[in-house]
């Protein structure tokens, strides 16, 4: 056999000889491995008992943020034309349409700008639901209409028809116009020519000029 072979064999013989490196590794393993398996077994036995939180989770449909409405716009602006072709613009802080089948858009702090014969007019309200088919806004709560020439009409809970420029109260109504404050069972106002028609025990209070003495 060659010299190298003899050297290689002897190195392997030293490695395998008793008290060599291999024996030390086996001695350590002989003691360490059983201890490791015991510790692992102990951990596996006690682990489920000491578990703190619910580790598993289920994706809950209600708690996940599902967009309920079909359309949500903030700072919405809608432009249209009325029967006579005069433009109107409807702006709202937020506009929500529940579903595509229902053409009703819920508006919040809305302002409608209408151009009338005698000039631009604005109509403001906090809540309104705008029916896109009939161009009507059903307003809940206060309604403020400011026309040209200082004309004003403040009332509550009215339906505004943007096509015919008419405003109608749902039921009993109060309001003020430049002439005075009124209340009635039903009210219809024509925003174009500034007329208010009150029906059903109508009341009107006018406070004329204090000293009405004209020469």
């Amino acid at each position: 056999m060659s010299e190298i072979a003899r050297q290689v064999r002897s190195r392997r013989q030293q490695w395998a000889a008793p008290g060599g490196r291999h024996d030390r590794v086996v001695a350590i393993a002989q003691m360490a491995l059983p201890v490791a398996t015991g510790v692992l077994a102990a951990f596996l036995v006690t682990a489920p008992l000491t578990r703190v939180g619910d580790v598993s989770f289920v994706l809950d449909k209600n708690r996940v943020a599902v967009a309920k409405e079909r359309l949500r716009i903030s700072k919405a602006s809608y432009r249209g034309e009325d029967a006579k072709g005069q433009p109107f613009e409807l702006q709202a802080g937020s506009a929500i349409q529940k579903s595509s089948t229902v053409p009703i858009v819920q508006l919040r702090d809305l302002a409608a700008k209408i151009t009338l014969a005698d000039g631009p007019a604005t109509l403001r309200a906090n809540h309104g639901s705008y029916d896109m088919d009939s161009d009507k806004i059903a307003i809940q709560g206060p309604v403020e209409f400011r026309g040209a020439g200082g004309y004003s009409l403040d009332t509550r809970n009215a339906v505004v028809n943007l096509k015919t420029r008419k405003l109608e109260s749902g039921g009993a109504v109060q309001g003020t116009t430049p002439l005075g404050t009124f209340s009635a069972d039903h009210m219809q106002a024509n925003l174009a020519d500034h007329t208010v028609t009150l029906n059903g025990n109508a009341r009107l209070r006018i406070v004329p000029k204090r000293a009405n003495r004209q020469p």
Partner: peptide
Amino acid sequence: DSGAPIDFSAAHIELQDKAKQAILS
């Protein structure tokens, strides 16, 4: 006192701002 507030009540009132009049019936 003709300057005192005037209270109207009627079955129908029509306020015509452009004609500067109100019609009560």
